[in-house]
């Protein structure tokens, strides 16, 4: 029998994502891919994978995997989640080898929204339109184009060839409240007052936040010449402002074209941090130039390139704060009635 990871519980939303689907946006196909590209790539690097290898993306926690292979190395990144291997607590942002019959339980998010489980060697899975990225609305990628569900078996592409030390990252990227954005492409569709409001006191992420986009709550942004444009293309991070004047940040599963003016674009270095802000969380936009955005991306790239040097031997058990164990609230905690769940399931 082939080596697999079995999905015992998916939590509110778990999908398979690689770096995204490239080359089909001209035919209306969303790029998809991870909500937090930084964490997705960090998880893959910790697992020893090439960037863009397909990984599990989970929302808010509640994912339980059973190991049905002799051994496999898993890496965990994105936000901060409670993690247990069998009954043993483990730090998040870590890389551990797990063995047949072990249960990997990811509990409630302590910080952030999106977590990633990278699998050393990747998964054996057919690609659709050149990618494994799941886009549920067009039923593409992943497993039958749908979220993972209990009972799914993820076939491992290769068995871990040799034992590898368990590692952890002591300094994961911090949360950000200041989100940098480059004005445009349609900043000329807004009044000076509208632009000042947008780059002003700040917003909260509303409950209408999912893989397609985050609707924000806060200052109204005044249009200068109506709120309809002849549709043009969108990117991840496009901030469109519909008629009601509150912005929507378009995310991974966005539609490829849109008919509302786009006041600004969140820079690639800060979109991961924005994605990790849960509904109710605060943010403030800061206007930056194209050159500053490119520099910020070089800084992010440098962080990823030095990641391997900063990994430390894993500390577990007695080294972990026992108070955190009492706070563990596995699977049941993120199902019905959780206000964070509202708007995050498709």
């Amino acid at each position: 029998m082939s080596d697999r990871l079995l999905v015992r519980a998916p939590g509110p939303l778990a999908t398979l994502q690689d770096a995204g689907r490239r080359g089909y946006q001209r035919l209306g196909v969303s790029g998809s891919g991870p909500m937090d590209r930084l964490a997705h790539e960090a998880a893959n690097r910790m697992a020893g994978n090439p960037p863009g290898t397909v990984a599990v993306e989970l929302a808010l926690g509640g994912l339980v995997l059973e190991v049905a292979a002799e051994r496999v190395r898993l890496a965990f990144a994105g936000g901060t989640f409670e993690l247990q291997i069998d009954d043993k607590p483990m730090p998040w942002w870590s890389c551990v080898t797990v063995h047949r019959g072990q249960m990997v339980r990811i509990g409630r998010a302590q910080a952030g929204v999106w977590g990633y489980v990278a699998i050393a060697g990747g998964l054996a899975l057919p690609a659709q339109l050149g990618s494994h990225a799941t886009h549920t609305l067009s039923r593409l990628g992943g497993i039958e184009g749908r979220p993972l569900r209990a009972g799914d078996a993820l076939a491992l592409a290769e068995l871990e060839p040799s034992p590898h030390p368990d590692l952890m990252l002591p300094d994961p990227p911090p949360a950000r409240e200041v989100i940098r954005a480059v004005p445009g492409p349609q900043d000329d569709y807004f009044t000076p007052a509208g632009l000042a409001a947008f780059f002003g006191e700040g917003y909260r992420v509303s409950a209408q936040a999912d893989r397609m986009g985050y609707r924000l709550e806060g200052p109204q942004v005044e249009h200068a010449k109506g709120f309809n444009i002849v549709s043009d293309g969108t990117v991840a991070g496009s901030v469109q402002v519909p008629g009601m004047g509150t912005p929507i940040v378009l995310m991974a599963d966005r539609q490829t074209t849109g008919g509302y003016p786009k006041i600004a674009t969140v820079i690639g270095a800060d979109l991961p941090a924005l994605a990790q802000i849960a509904p109710g969380g605060r943010l403030r936009f800061q206007s930056v130039s194209f050159e500053q955005a490119l520099e910020a991306r070089r800084v992010m790239r440098g962080w990823l390139d030095r990641l391997a040097d900063r990994l430390e031997p894993l500390r577990t058990g007695a080294d972990l704060d026992p108070a955190r164990l009492l706070g563990l609230n596995l699977i049941g905690g993120v199902t019905a009635g959780d206000p964070l769940r509202e708007g995050l399931v498709p």
């Binding site: 954005a181 480059v182 445009g184 492409p185 293309g233 786009k262 674009t265 490119l294």
Partner: peptide, 10 residues
């Protein structure tokens, strides 16, 4: 030529 962030132009 318009800016659409740091990974695209319009």
């Amino acid at each position: 030529i318009l800016h659409a962030g740091d990974a695209a132009f319009v």
